[in-house]
Design a protein around this nucleic acid. Sequence first.
DNA 1: TGCAGAAATTGGTTGGACCATTGAACCACT
DNA 2: AGTGGTTCAATGGTCCAACCAATTTCTGCA
Lengths: 244, 244
Amino acid sequence: MDQNSLPPIQTTARDDAVLKALVGFVRAEALQPGERLPTERILAERLKVSRNTVREALTRWEGLGLVERRQGSGTYLKAAVSPDMLHMPLTLAGGNDFTSLMQTLEIRRALEAEAAALCAERASQTDIAEIARKLDIMEQAFRTRDGMSSEEDWEFHQAIYRVSGNPLFEQIIAAMHELFHRFWEHPLGVRDFGHASFPYHRTIYECIAARDPQGARAEALKLIATVEDDLKRGAAKLKLSSQT
Amino acid sequence: MDQNSLPPIQTTARDDAVLKALVGFVRAEALQPGERLPTERILAERLKVSRNTVREALTRWEGLGLVERRQGSGTYLKAAVSPDMLHMPLTLAGGNDFTSLMQTLEIRRALEAEAAALCAERASQTDIAEIARKLDIMEQAFRTRDGMSSEEDWEFHQAIYRVSGNPLFEQIIAAMHELFHRFWEHPLGVRDFGHASFPYHRTIYECIAARDPQGARAEALKLIATVEDDLKRGAAKLKLSSQT
DNA sequence: TGCAGAAATTGGTTGGACCATTGAACCACT
DNA sequence: AGTGGTTCAATGGTCCAACCAATTTCTGCA
């Protein structure tokens, strides 16, 4: 007999019920990200629950990044919600030594290559045009303020992840990106950090435009390799200490 | 002028402070996963904050899967905590349709291949022996109760991730694994799901034992490909409906 | 000794109050 | 017209005290 055929009954699940009601409300009102949702007090009154219960529910959504609360202003939707959404909080133990930085790059190497290949397979003409636009912006920023183009660089990569058609790429790589930059505010000691990776942005783009998945994968691997080299050079120079 | 030179100041952050204190407490007491942490009432008194504030903080941790609350019993630690954790809520929209399952497999394809290659590079003799042990257990379980060896199968893979030397592989792939199995309780329609992947476990192992990264990568890709095939067959058979 | 019921413990919920921040309206002065 | 200051209502953040519901522990009877 299947044990799963008799799930435990739910006598109380107040805040879960509140969240379900919230999902219904967001869909009914067709709320878009950025819009404000009702006051906590109003929600409490409408749903016939205590304001504290509403707060617990909203706290959970806030933790999941679905919603943003601004004191004195209101609670705002931050992402699209749907009833059958799947949330999976992933907590990564961070460390701030050279090894940790290298580990984030190993993940990026795998995902970046796959995303570039998928992107080259699936990109439409408008997708390619969009990526070209981001590439131009990045290259211009690179030339203008020599080297420091991290913001535009990141947007170029994000465009590729999106075109890959799999939102998980962007989410996971973004986490790696944040993990990486948390202890890398200013490229430690390596003045020209990122310079070596510059040309590969265009080669990646050319492979994507040519619908060449294997080529895009190879160029992405080269790009990550340059970052790894920069990191190793920085580590050798500064002899990064691992502060436990 | 650099816009980042004037970051928004932080005036109050009560529940964040509570969480920081909690991290300190867990480390000071060397609490292990499974152990109980102090009562909400005690925490409120000790930290000189309201019980409500403590609850908000604990709700966040619960949402992150760090802690489990059992009414009438207490609050229990579910995972190790460290001060510099990075929380990454993954949200997969679209629910239980074919596309979502495929997306988790695309991530696994990239990471599984990289992890296998790194494992083959870095495995020591004891590592290889450990993997061989897990492989034996899995193969025996597979033969005993024909096919259903998911638990032992998973342990084999985990051993590979660990030997890769990068804990991020295990954590991220574990998240994909759980994501995958959440809407795949019963292999839908495909009776012999997983059978096709069986032989590749041994071929992966052999490449690792032979210190052949490229071979291990190739075999890992073949393994994932069989899972993707199974999934496609199941989707074609059931014509999975995406319930918006 | 065994076990059913009472009592204590603990998370879950409620309602009400007050504080801190925000943003809009309004006003005075230049 | 515009700049800066003030007021005020709205809103999230915190607090308190009590009670509810599930769980655990204790107690006393058979």
